[in-house]
């Protein structure tokens, strides 16, 4: 496979992730979409290193601490939700959750005075 083709595949995965982040209505889908963005970034680093900087170790040096930090932060986030929400609060997480919620009043101001 060619370099550009793999890069465009990665771009597609990134776009699926961004689409999911904008469109999803619950917190788990938003987390899954974020994972896809992380996968796309990881693959981009590997592909660039493999095709262009073959004798360099810097991609691995970056990926190991970088991805580890991302996952540990997300682990802390989920653990925080898990510990600090009781049963009823967890039920709240099933309700409408939008990462980016833009309503009409964000553009035109408050319509009820």
């Amino acid at each position: 496979m060619s370099f550009s083709m793999i890069i465009y595949f990665n771009l597609l995965i990134l776009l699926i992730g961004i689409f999911g982040m904008i469109y999803s209505r619950d917190i788990i889908s938003a987390i899954v979409s974020l994972q896809l963005v992380v996968i796309s970034g990881l693959m981009n680093f590997l592909v660039f290193s493999h095709f262009l900087y073959r004798y360099s170790l810097w991609d691995r040096m970056f990926i190991i601490p970088g991805v580890t930090v991302i996952y540990l932060v997300m682990f802390c986030l989920i653990y925080y939700l898990y510990l600090n929400k009781d049963k009823l609060d967890r039920q709240e997480l099933y309700r409408d959750f939008r990462l980016f919620k833009i309503t009409k009043s964000d553009w035109w101001g408050e319509d009820i005075i």
Partner: peptide
């Protein structure tokens, strides 16, 4: 690559 693409689409 194709497995990654299909599983990403399904997971979304």
């Amino acid at each position: 690559i194709f497995g990654l693409l299909i599983s990403c689409l399904l997971s979304i």
